[in-house]
Design a protein around this nucleic acid. Structure first.
Length: 886
RNA sequence: GCCCGGAUGGUGGAAUGGUAGACACGCAGGACUUAAAAUCCUGUGGCCAUAGCGGCUGUGCGGGUUCAAGUCCCGCUCCGGGUACCA
């Protein structure tokens, strides 16, 4: 039979749909369960690109394999459907974003179904569905009603928050303020990034290094706006510790660790000369206090203006003003020279009571640590540079561990900066009584820290780079906050019965220039009055797109439950996610946010596991060829033509270089999966995406390659659909051995997600049997079976031709029989001094001594030993023989 | 700068410290065909030799460990990703 993929694929897709083949089992008694999850897509108008099927095929192969291994498999798909593009479209056309969103979902669903992916469509979710976002809003309420108990390292209901005596004495308002200051979700004035083009605030994470908005590329600016924030840093320690038992790529764990940015050190209080308040700094090197020769305070620090002396007031205020106008790009660019001015004020160094000047400089950031530093120019590069520029004193307090005497001299004289370890010098003071001279860094930090603590001058402290998460957006197309702002300043959240709070229809979706959400126009929806006649206004911001994707894996478990976020019994059965595959671009934000929410839900007893995703895997990006001229100008793919393995510009005739680049409209190198499916079929697309290379690496798409796997499927179809090739009786031992090797290889490769080598193993097997020309029914059935996770349509068809009824999906995976894998003889490679010289067939069970004798007796050995007895012979049974000749 | 990852034929890639280049693409030659496509067979890292056997060399570069290194260690180069005055 010729490989008629169109007919076969249509037939089996219809069969699966009609028979609900992939409906998730309801029976929760099977101890073997497997939750296989894809990162769900944002359904863009462009439809699927070839990157989507890559991850989806991988999880599909895994899911199908696990079903055959007797697992209950949960394998769902849904839509992360809130988002800016639909809203932009709404602004331009006036159509409700839901309309275009649903249309796009339909396109995605159709395309995905055409790939033969074994999703249970009854579990489908959509983040924009009120039945779904009701629970996103509900989680927000839980966050609002939770505080973090640092002692227990656990989130707890605010009803359990103990109010300190002195607060409760001051009355209801103070109690409210205190409570609000502890909630995981809080509403506050925040300095935020504002994208004037999108008219939206962006989280720090959404602003790129060059100061542009990641979504639109325009330069963002700073604004002060009232915003919802989430106190994710409270969970920093838990988020770090949670990695211990997770099967995640180390690189992704590292990226998250970096992002959390834990650093240990101390907070030290400095007295300010002639001033009541103290200036507190955070430092990772309290041991270098003796080298602190000046201090620097951030321009935005609340003490900056107040400590400035009259003499310096003008110059300081103009500096503050100037730096407030600078973009963060200007401020953080390392290439820029550091700037700063003296405040006229001095602080007292607590270890030696010396007066040191306090400067203002914008290289000190407000948002990290305390917004002020002690500067130790001799042992910190940045401080060294600043001190050099402004002529501030540099005192070396550490005799460096260097061998070069010239360098050591320069360091000790303060002419060079030293940040590594060494022995302290100049680090003792008779009056304060502290002395760390002679110690090294580790001991010095410990001694100084405990001295500071004993004198009440400071304390050991852990700091994180991770900041509070800015959680609101000035947008229409997102989850509305279930929040009312009352005229008396109180904020309340809706009760669960009032959820979901749906979006009101609007005439226009354009946000106001002032940073007002489009929802501010929805007067009727906006204004509310409570039973006592108090007037209130709903929150007009909406949640960011992260909100819906933070917890979707939970709703898949019980998507239609109207009573609860999900049934606890089902949650206990299916969680955690056993395998989660998606792109590395979500390595930090989505996964970190999601883990944070999950931990809160865990603390509140809503979920039973501390971490949501047991095993994570990142697929590599699929790139495509493009071209460039000698001068490096990009040429789009449609303008290049190939002649004799070289590429030429169709119009100019100039020779071009083939390069690998991201698929983009401008380079005209976008591969549409629909085209591949219509030319070669879904099975070929699936197989090719898996055969392209290891799942985790980025790799270029090459159209020619599809033909290779298409050829493989065609040959498999031709051979196994021809009944005359399939006979009763004994199987050829060589075929039997190869079959069982292949089963074993495919099995372990699927477990390890090495799909490319699994496919190559099946190709080797097919090459063998087509050469042999004949297999038994059992062999044909087993091969069809192992092929089925990869090419499910063809496998179903072959199985039905072989005379079986029903679907292949739940037929048990073939067992490897070790019996057939045993080798009688082994062809040993024989090398002399590590160089392979010849091969020799020997019985597999042959003893070492006999092997050595036989090898040395072989006439070919003489040439390499020169007749002399060898110095040594290494025998690795079943591997290699190496003769060592001196 | 710092943190991660990578570099293997013309191409995508394979290889528990143990036969480097599996499998596939491409290319070359052949069969079938009036011809082409499709299909099938053979060859295919480089260099040398060749009637035939064969030999040398080779996994970004330079060292090292080992009987044996693509794989482990040290020092670089280049490429990709993340991050960025985080005290």
């Amino acid at each position: 039979m010729e490989y008629n993929f169109r007919e076969i694929e249509k037939k089996w897709q219809t069969y699966w749909e009609k028979n609900k083949t992939f409906k998730t089992p309801e029976d929760l008694t099977n101890p073997k369960k497997c939750y296989v999850l894809d990162m769900f897509p944002y359904p863009s108008g462009a439809g699927l690109h070839v990157g989507h099927p890559e991850g989806y095929t991988a999880t599909d192969i895994y899911s199908r394999y696990k079903r055959m291994k007797g697992y209950n498999v949960l394998h769902p798909m849904g839509w992360d459907a809130f988002g800016l593009p639909a809203e932009q479209y709404a602004i331009q056309t006036g159509t409700h974003p839901a309309v275009i969103t649903n249309k796009n979902c339909d396109i995605f669903r159709r395309q995905i179904k055409e790939l033969g992916l074994s999703y249970d469509w009854e579990k489908e979710i959509n983040t924009t569905d009120p039945g779904y976002f009701k629970w996103t809003q509900w989680i927000f309420i839980q966050l609002y009603n939770t505080w973090f108990d640092e002692e227990l390292q656990k989130g707890r209901p605010v009803s359990e928050l103990a109010i300190p005596e002195e607060i409760s004495r001051q009355g209801a308002e103070k109690i409210r303020d205190y409570t609000n200051s502890r909630r995981l979700a809080y509403y506050d004035n925040a300095q935020v990034w504002w994208c004037p083009v999108c008219r939206i605030v962006c989280a720090n994470e959404e602003v790129l290094n060059d100061g542009s908005h990641e979504k639109c590329g325009n330069v963002v600016e700073k604004r002060n706006l009232k915003q919802w924030m989430l106190r994710i840093p409270l969970y920093a320690e838990r988020l770090l510790k949670g990695f211990d038992n997770l099967n995640w790529p180390e690189g992704i764990k590292d990226m998250q660790r970096n992002w959390i940015g834990r650093s240990t050190g101390a907070e030290v209080d400095f007295r300010i000369d002639g001033f009541e308040e103290k200036l507190t700094v955070f430092t990772t090197r309290p041991d270098t206090l003796f080298g602190a020769t000046y201090m620097v305070i951030a321009p935005e620090h609340q003490l900056t203006s107040r400590i400035t002396t009259d003499e310096y007031r003008d110059i300081v205020s103009s500096y503050i003003k100037a730096s407030s106008l600078k973009s963060d790009l200007d401020r953080t660019d390392l290439a820029k020279e550091k700037t700063g001015v003296f405040t006229g004020r001095y602080a007292i160094n607590p270890v030696n009571l010396k007066q040191i000047p306090i400067w203002v400089a914008d290289y000190v950031l407000t948002g990290y640590g305390t917004g002020a530093i002690m500067a130790v120019p001799a042992h910190d590069e940045r401080d060294f540079e600043f001190a050099g520029k402004f002529g501030l004193p540099i005192t070396c307090i550490q005799d460096p561990d260097v061998t070069d005497p010239g360098q050591r001299k320069r360091i000790i004289e303060g002419l060079e900066c030293w940040t590594e370890d060494g022995r302290y010098i100049n680090s003792a003071n008779g009056i304060t009584g502290i002395d760390i001279n002679g110690l090294n860094k580790e001991a010095g930090i410990e001694k100084i820290t405990s001295w500071l603590e004993s004198k009440g001058l400071g304390k050991a402290k852990v700091n994180y780079k991770l900041r509070d998460w800015l959680f609101s957006r000035q947008r229409y197309w997102g989850e509305p906050f279930p929040v009312i702002h009352w005229e008396d300043g109180e904020i309340t959240v809706l009760s669960e019965d009032d959820l979901p709070l749906e979006l009101p229809p609007l005439d226009k979706y354009l946000p106001g220039e002032s940073g007002e959400s489009p929802l501010a126009h929805a007067t009727e929806w906006l204004n509310v009055t409570d039973e006592k006649g108090r007037k209130g206004r709903r929150e007009t911001n909406t949640m960011p797109q992260w909100a819906g994707s933070c917890w979707y894996y939970l709703r898949y478990i019980d998507p239609a439950n109207p009573e609860k976020i999900l049934d606890p019994e089902k949650e206990k059965y299916w969680m955690p996610v056993d395998l989660y595959i998606g792109g590395a671009e979500h390595a930090v934000l989505h996964l970190l946010y999601s883990r944070f929410w999950h931990k809160v839900l865990y603390d509140l007893g809503i979920v039973s596991t501390d971490e949501p995703y047991l095993r994570l895997f990142n697929q590599g990006m699929i790139l495509a060829f493009a071209y460039e001229t000698n001068s490096g100008a990009k040429v789009s793919a449609d303008l290049a033509e190939e002649r004799d393995n070289k590429y030429y510009h169709k119009e100019t005739g100039a020779e071009l270089r083939q390069i690998v680049a991201k698929m983009s409209k401008s380079l005209k190198n976008v591969i549409n999966p629909d085209d591949v499916v219509s030319r070669y079929g879904a099975d070929s697309l699936r197989l090719y995406e898996m055969f392209l290379g290891p799942l985790e690496v980025t790799k270029p798409w090459d159209d020619k390659g599809v033909k290779g796997v298409f050829g493989f499927l065609s040959r498999a179809c031709r051979f196994f659909s021809d009944i005359s090739n399939i006979a009763e009786g004994e199987e050829d031992p060589e075929v039997l051995k190869s079959l069982h090797q292949t089963i074993r290889k495919v099995e372990s490769d699927i477990e390890n997600l090495h799909f490319n080598t699994a496919i190559s193993a099946m190709m080797i097997f097919l090459n063998l049997v087509t050469r042999k020309g004949r297999v038994t029914r059992e062999t044909a059935a087993a091969f069809t079976q192992i092929l089925s996770p990869f090419a499910p349509h063809l496998a179903e068809e072959l199985r039905s031709i072989q005379g079986y009824k029903g679907t292949i999906s739940f037929i048990p995976w073939p067992e490897v029989n070790e019996e057939y894998l045993r080798k009688e003889v082994f062809e040993y490679p024989v090398s002399f001094n590590g160089k392979l010289r010849f091969r020799i067939q020997l019985p597999a069970e042959m003893e070492r001594e006999d092997i050595i004798k036989t090898v040395l007796a072989d006439e070919r050995s003489e040439k390499w030993t020169g007749g002399k007895p060898p110095a040594d012979v290494i025998v690795v049974p079943g591997r290699i023989v190496n003769v060592v000749v001196k």
